[in-house]
Amino acid sequence: MKQLDNLKFSKLNNVLVPVLSVIMGFILGAIIMIIFGYNPIFSYNAMFETAFQTSKNIGEIFVMAAPLMFTALGFSVAYSAGFFNIGLSGQALSGWVISIWVGLLLNDAPRPVAILCAVLAGVIAGALSAAIPGLLRAYFGTSEVIVTIMMNYVLLHTSTHIVNNVIPKEFINTKGTTKMVEAASLKTEFLSSISNGSRLNMGIILAVIFLFLIWFLMKKTTLGYEITSVGLNPFASEYAGMSSKRIIVLSMVISGSLAGLGGAVYGLGTFGNFFIQGGSLSIGFDGMAVSLLGGGSSVGILLSAILFSILKLGGQGMPIKAGVPTELVDVVIAAIIFFVGISYLIKFVLNKIETKKAKGGQA
């Protein structure tokens, strides 16, 4: 009976912790706005009004959510294996630039072939980018956090080099590459028309498919069981006959593949081209927060990716409608991410409360 109660409380925690994280983030954001003389109710109203004002805005929410789902899934796979993939930004960036490059080269190919080749190129680029820190972690014991952070800078400057010196000049303009032709584009007239001309594309469909595929991989396959086992205890997994080195590299490759796919969707669907970046992609670090908020589960990642997209898109309306400075909007969003990041503290408090209740009941 006690084990059943503990199981119920654990499941309740999985729902309560992310919800409380978001609520506390909004409360802290409201306090910050009050300190600087802004009305939080009016400001939050402006945020949600902007996000849901038109069907086009709603379509843009899903446009922003799709790449986040891929990077969040990538982080969750690596996290299940017991390490942090901080290189999601660089892996997504490599997937973005390579998919656009291949898509531009295949502008005369049949559309299914062009899309498939461009997307696969992005996946492979992300996988190779993640394989390097994975191999170093598995065979040399290096810190994946340090290596992946360094790889972000390597891949950032490599992408700039590819645009400036490798991609044929006929595909280059002053800001980056030319716009993607229809052959390799993920955009469709149908999705654009039902969202009143938004950039909604097939990326969101791919994201939902991969939410299911990764759930199936982690919960229903031997490989998923091995990844989770190695993450929990690599020594016991080795004793049971699993190769922890192989699993570490494989999980990192899968993680990078998903991030690269997110970058491909970012390029082939959202923007239609690649433009030179001055820093790491936000979808990498936001994807980590999305994964943590969603508890690493597919349904949780779906909901938290949509929430983050609402915050990002709705935040653009706060300076216009509520007069809140853009910098303060970023602080408010960061406050919410902060509580997502320390969700373990909320879980700790809830566990303490439950322990006290249990002791009181026994007394």
Rank of each mutant, 00 (worst) to 15 (best):
D5N: 15
Y153A: 00
F338W: 08
S282F: 04
S309M: 04
Y266E: 12
S257H: 09
F26R: 11
L7I: 14
S21I: 15
A305R: 09
G272S: 07
V119S: 14
S237K: 11
I320M: 05
G126R: 05
I149H: 00
Q3R: 10
M151I: 13
I342L: 03
L307Q: 14
K245E: 08
I149K: 00
I27Y: 12
L16N: 10
Y225F: 15
G263H: 13
L136N: 13
P325M: 12
A264L: 10
I306C: 06
G262C: 08
Q53D: 07
L345W: 07
M252Y: 05
E144T: 03
L311S: 05
S257W: 07
V166A: 07
F48I: 15
L104F: 06
A131E: 04
G103P: 07
I115S: 10
G203I: 14
R137L: 02
P67N: 04
S43P: 02
K8C: 09
D5Q: 15
V253Q: 01
T178Q: 06
R137S: 01
L211S: 15
A259L: 02
L106V: 10
L120I: 15
I283E: 00
G284N: 02
I124E: 03
P234A: 09
C117V: 14
S192N: 03
G103Q: 07
S159D: 04
K356S: 08
I172T: 09
A125I: 14
K8Q: 14
N165Y: 15
N152W: 03
A81F: 00
K179Q: 13
N196K: 09
L206I: 15
A335M: 09
L4D: 01
V15M: 12
V331C: 07
T326N: 04
S237L: 04
A127S: 09
L281K: 06
A259T: 15
K169M: 05
G103N: 07
K220Q: 11
F83N: 01
G272D: 11
Y239L: 11
P110K: 11
N196W: 05
T355N: 00
G141W: 12
N85R: 02
L68N: 00
G295Q: 09
L345F: 12
Y38L: 11
M47W: 07
N165K: 11
G262V: 12
T326H: 08
V324Q: 09
V324M: 06
L250C: 05
V324T: 12
F275R: 13
A92N: 00
N233S: 13
G284S: 04
